[in-house]
Amino acid sequence: MNNILKNIFKLKKEKSSEQFEPGVTMVQTTPLSEDQLKAVSFANVALRPPQFLIGCGQSVGLQRDHNEDTIFSMSSILADGRNDVPFGLCVVADGMGGHLNGEIASAVAARTVARILINKIYTHLLENNPDPMEESLQETIEHAVNEVQKNVVRYAPGGGTTLTIALILGEQVTIAHVGDSRAYFIYPDGRIQRLTKDHSLVQRMIDLEEITEAEAKNHPHRNVLLKAIGQAEPVYPDVQTHQIPKSGHLMLCSDGLWGVVAEADLYRSISSQSDPALACKEMINLANKNGGPDNISVILVKFQG
């Protein structure tokens, strides 16, 4: 149903970037008494401030002679007792094999997007008296992806890359992607929720029920992307925001991992290691054990519940 709707409502929502006039408002409050407060506040046993660990891993694989993937990750906590604002940024870019300038494209993409989002959002967080952001988070990310597009065309002409971004801010994670590098939530109970839908020919064929997921795995055209950075302009990433699971993981990876290692095995690696970096190492080993046909990139974010 959603697919049908999507096909019909291709309408892209209008975007706006308005300036907000600062307003002056009086605040007068009488605090509740301690007793009243006790009545309205709840015991909070969660870890304060909420935080997460990031691990990552990369391997050229066993059948390629050089690496064309780029990954980026950062994490930061700012907790002043009033507001706890965890910030995290993860990027996976899979430069397109066979493409001229593939590895340059992925590096340009990851650098550009990290630079823009850190400048616009992270710096803003550290501002003493920040003006309200002019754009929504999703708009900022969308604009960043379009900047990336221009940069790739300029610095890596002919090159192409996927781009999957996860921006963690407070209790929400906003994910944008172009191409087939994926984002997953992995829950402690073993559920694996894929958040991104590949912009690939085989995904489209699966949607049309022309092939099954299983057939897609060995399909001769499984590498054909319908959308990528560095191709036709402009590019519209899929952007979505989700509440971060209280405990569990967020994983970003290139097809060198998800296309080679079964989900159940990924889950086993992740749940058996308390250190996300070691889990990444284990997943990369699995991919190489399975032949390592492609470059492998993975970023694993572990949320402390």
Partner: peptide
């Protein structure tokens, strides 16, 4: 505008015109 703001911080997550 229709707004979606981060409930914790008031950041605009998205806006729908």
């Amino acid at each position: 505008n229709f707004y979606a703001l981060d409930a914790k911080s008031g950041w605009v997550i998205w806006r729908f015109r």
